[in-house]
Design a protein around this nucleic acid. Structure first.
Lengths: 116, 116
DNA sequence: CAAACCTTGACAAGGTCGTGGTAATGTTGG
DNA sequence: CCAACATTACCACGACCTTGTCAAGGTTTG
């Protein structure tokens, strides 16, 4: 049975045992399990836990932020949708299509009708 | 003074006025202001608000998720740090450096000493 | 001017996050 | 066998997210 148990891993990584279980629950770190269900932390997990802790502290992130980044990283569809929205912004007035303005004017006039 | 006022914008975008202010506060949408401080929504903002709403619904995201994505998008440093951490994972046992294993064994032995 | 609109600021309430406990139960190792 | 440790499943609490609503005060416009 190779791997540290949860309390040992807690000691060397600086996470609490409680948090190690929580981190696992977020999907950010997966552990092996012994035959009877004990979590076993190998050197990779320990390293990952240490660097994760650093990452969170350095940029003041939450686990949920990193979890979302993982989601972004895993889904091309999500990533391009979000990126697409973000890049929609830098449009300057000149770049706005004519029918956007048209729709806009319609809205402005509609409001007059609506208020009647 | 061109641009819809907040209630008009709310009508055509499906957001509540309260949420329009909140969205603005997250930094995801910026509005012009009239001389007296009224928010003015132009066609770009309206379009962005509609697509944002769609994006959130489609992937079940929160505004904070998109805000974080914006942060990722804006900071090369943050992006590469997070990405770096995420890509640290796919290391297979064979790829783990020897001194990681060494450190690992040291830890395992240290724990015996520590418990004495 | 008065009604209808805007602003910011605050309180509220239900949800999730991060974290610590405790309890009940199974496992390990001397 | 028994002490020390693991597991899951809860309760709890403070902080923040999302929303709504209300108050006190300026603005626009018929």
């Amino acid at each position: 049975m190779d791997g540290l148990t949860i309390n040992e891993a807690a000691q060397t990584t600086g996470w609490s045992p409680r948090m190690l279980r929580y981190v696992e629950q977020t999907g950010l770190i997966a552990t092996q399990r012994s035959a009877s269900g004990y979590r076993l932390y190998g050197p990779e997990q320990l390293q990952r836990l240490r660097t994760l802790k650093e990452l969170l502290a350095r940029f003041d992130l939450g686990l949920s932020d990193v979890a979302f980044a993982a989601r972004l990283s895993a889904s091309e569809e999500l990533r391009s949708a979000v990126q697409g929205w973000l890049e929609e912004q830098p449009r300057r007035p000149d770049d706005v299509a004519a029918d956007d303005w048209l729709r806009f004017e319609q809205e402005k006039h509609q409001r007059l009708l609506a208020s009647a």
